[in-house]
Amino acid sequence: MDRTTIDLWVGIFVALGVSALLGLAIKVGNLRSNSLGETYTVTAAFDNVGGLKPRAPIKSAGVVVGRVDDISFDTKNFEAVVTLKIDQRYPFPKDTFANIYTAGLLGEQYLGLEAGGDEESLKNGDRIQQTQDAVVLEKMISQFLYSKASETEPEKAQAPAPATKPSDSKSTELGDAPF
């Protein structure tokens, strides 16, 4: 076969391959939303981050405003310290509230920011004071079951049954779960 024809075919082949890479990167991998512009870094401490992972999205009002940069463990307070990278375009008030949410029932966990009313904005290196821990499904379910149990038990038997005792003590042990 002629050399120029071969060159042409190989050229087409390479162009197809490279455009497949670009196509996959843009259409499938969503190159644009992954690349944040200039960012500022703030930290937030949580008692429990659940399944939150580095590179998880940070959303406010459903819009991705940044990404989780790093999660580390603070040995002084025995807390998880999450480092957040937030886009420079989105300033947040100092008293912003950080929550860890789950997308759907079994979906990925992400960090939600709810803006407060402070005049001053968060700056690079600041710490978000108000945080709420991740919802741990097992805790939620057990709490639900125990609360159900404590509702129905007294209706069935008027006298306080011995079975309710441990369930009460356990539910206080669980502390202030989010509902």
Binding site: K27, V28, G29
Partner: peptide
């Protein structure tokens, strides 16, 4: 279809590792 894909496919971990 597309947005779920875009949200969950990572360029470095999925595409580049495949390459």
């Amino acid at each position: 279809f597309w947005s779920q894909m875009q949200a969950n496919v990572d360029i470095r971990e999925d595409i580049i590792n495949g390459v």
